[in-house]
Design a protein around this nucleic acid. Structure first.
Lengths: 188, 188
DNA sequence: CCTCAAGTATACTGATCGGTGAACATCGCC
DNA sequence: GGCGATGTTCACCGATCAGTATACTTGAGG
């Protein structure tokens, strides 16, 4: 098993180039030659670092997941009120979506990689389950009576906003508003 | 412009094979040679019928969209109560998801085809907008005061259920339940 | 000074990609 | 009886795919 996190400067540049290309054009549609060229690196170096395209894909998703979680955590920490913190991931989603008009990178990756044994599946599933767990934790911290139920509902709203992102109506605002109403009701 | 709907028997078999392969394995990952082989047809015939892989992709999505809309319409017609009909698409979604464990074919297609000029984009966007319009129409028919707002909310719940489909909790039940509560509240 | 890891340069493999050319067979229909 | 549409057979195209081989360079640390 090779390490997932790249340590050398070249490795970091490769992952950065892969992130942009994979997300904007699709994983299958992007060849390793192009990634090597964009990161100013030889294909040989790419394979010395990651061993295969599949492992590079896993590194790309892991890196993206790391950045996203950090953004969500910051949004949660920025809330003074514990009740307001429950819907903080929706604020983070607003920030996140602005530079990412092509939907959820993990959902997109699963669409292209049907094999459940592919490392991308674990990463994508873990990402959603992490958010579900976070919702539950935040709800419990705020004193919610049934944090599990509330968490699933919030997750559905969150993913619904993400999926309808390209559509004309501002679905993110609508889902955030619904989420706030749900949270308010759970405590009122 | 070539016709989107295949008329010949061979054309129908090609679209049927393309549907299964594209949906289960991904569009970019499936080559035209495989589709021709699976449908018991020569590659030449495939190209005589559709002209290009992109047009075959469009035909695949159009066919799927047609089947899905018909299922939703049937679910709506099966409702005696006009208020219950508003959430009928959630019943249809339950039936639909059972044989389609790989999520929404249209979302998946958009993930693989970044070019907004690709015919798949119009088809996918039209599908979501059609559902939005249907929700609004059903809400208005049931006597809702603000059918537009309700429709967007229902769409978010619907897509949220679709996106979280592979996760362990029964998110479809949760979203359907939330939808029913929303509808009830809109009339109460 | 020497070593070892990181990276470069270039050429190559076999397979598959989307798409085409040309000649031939089969069929219903006027 | 001929004609046009539908479909077949099979060979072919240039491009790209993921991945490898071999030999060379560079720089930091002991």
């Amino acid at each position: 098993m090779q390490e997932a996190r790249p340590v050398t400067p070249a490795g970091r540049r490769i992952v950065a180039a892969a992130e942009e290309l994979f997300y904007s054009r699709g994983i299958t549609a992007v060849g390793v030659d192009l990634i090597a060229e964009r990161s100013g690196v030889t294909k040989r170096t790419l394979y010395n670092q990651f061993g295969s395209k599949d492992r590079l894909v896993a590194a790309y998703l892991a890196e993206r997941d790391k950045r996203w979680r950090s953004l969500v955590r910051d949004a949660v920490d920025a809330c003074a009120d514990r009740v307001a913190a429950v819907t903080a991931p929706f604020d983070a989603l607003r920030t996140w979506s602005e530079g990412n008009p092509r939907g959820c990178a993990f959902i997109n990756a699963l669409a292209e990689l049907p094999d459940p044994a592919h490392p991308a599946h674990r990463i994508a599933a873990d990402q959603k389950l992490w958010l579900l767990g976070l919702f539950e934790e935040l709800a419990a911290d705020a004193g919610c009576r049934d944090p599990g139920t509330l968490a699933v509902r919030l997750l559905v709203l969150h993913e619904g906003a993400l999926a309808t992102q390209p559509l004309p109506p501002d679905t993110l605002a609508v889902s955030a508003e619904l989420a706030t109403a749900l949270v308010r009701r759970a405590f009122g």
